[in-house]
Amino acid sequence: MLSIEELYKSYGSVTALNGLSFHVNPGELFGFVGSNGAGKTTAMRIILGVLAADSGRVTWQGQPLDHDIRRDIGYMPEERGLYPRMKVGEQLIYLARLHGLSADEAADAMERWTEKLDIAHRRDDLVQTLSLGNQQRVQLAAALVSDPTIMVLDEPFSGLDPVAVDVMSDVLREKTREGVPVIFSSHQLSLVENLCDRVGIISEGAMVTVGEIDELRQTDQPEYEIVTDAGSTASFEHLGLATALQEQRGERVLRRLVAPRPDFDEQQILKSALAHGPVYEFYRRRPHLEELFRGVVTTQSKETR
């Protein structure tokens, strides 16, 4: 397990990390999300040893991260860390050799990952001649050629088209199946929601909520959406429900209802609606990660003012 414990980091009067703590399990895809300046990149650089924390520690399998362990981390920075005037294949071999692979191992790794990431035909091209999306694929290949035991990726999906996103997602899932913990940051919250096993939301240098997607989407006041005829006279106030949204959809109307407690009997809603006409849709609505993010970050900002 990769464990981040009580990290503090300040730059003069600016606090970048304020007691940040979380962990990433082996074989887990962990989404690390937060606003710009929340502390994500600082935390990643401390994990890598590029920055030193003022206090706190980072451990892998219970042991402090030393040079040998960090050598096995596959890192993908947000700002591309590639040599623009070096050929793709030569660059990947060079980086693999820096991680301790033999010449043959480095060449094999380069061939494998350029094939898998669909850039094998660009091995002899200079990085600067590639599109931004292909440069991003090369950057991921650079993080993979050393066969890392931990992966830390800062905005890996930035600038990718949907096909490239699918390719990169498949690669990350493959690594987690091998038991590699993968932590990545992203502002594409729908992608994080669909891809990750767990998510942590950081705000102002501290982790404000963390958990599995389904766990985070649970609410104390369940919401339901029901679609009936626009002329339906169904009312739900007597059930203690509040109407959060009412939207006309042609000859039908959508209502979003908020229940007063977690154990509310949703069948009461359906029964009341059917007594006044047909019901075309009825389901429990769970907030998406984007809504959770806005709510958590907004609340945190108000509390720290």
Rank of each mutant, 00 (worst) to 15 (best):
L29A: 07
K302P: 14
G37D: 10
L132M: 14
L117Y: 05
E79C: 10
D161R: 03
R71Q: 13
E266C: 10
P64Y: 06
G56K: 07
E193S: 03
F30C: 00
V145R: 08
V163D: 03
P260Q: 04
Y8W: 11
S13W: 05
T129S: 10
L132H: 11
V180E: 02
D104H: 15
W113R: 05
G34N: 05
D72M: 13
F22Y: 13
L20G: 11
R123H: 03
R97M: 08
E78H: 08
M207F: 11
E115D: 15
I150G: 00
R57V: 15
V88T: 05
Q246W: 06
S55A: 13
Q218K: 08
G74W: 00
R255Q: 11
G12Q: 07
L144W: 11
R173D: 01
G159V: 13
A96H: 05
A38L: 00
T243W: 02
T243C: 09
E178F: 00
H288F: 02
Y280K: 07
D108V: 14
E266H: 11
V208L: 07
E90D: 14
G277P: 09
D161P: 09
G211I: 04
A103G: 13
L274C: 15
P181R: 01
P278W: 09
G37K: 08
R217P: 01
A141D: 06
E174T: 02
I73D: 09
S235Y: 06
E6V: 13
M86G: 07
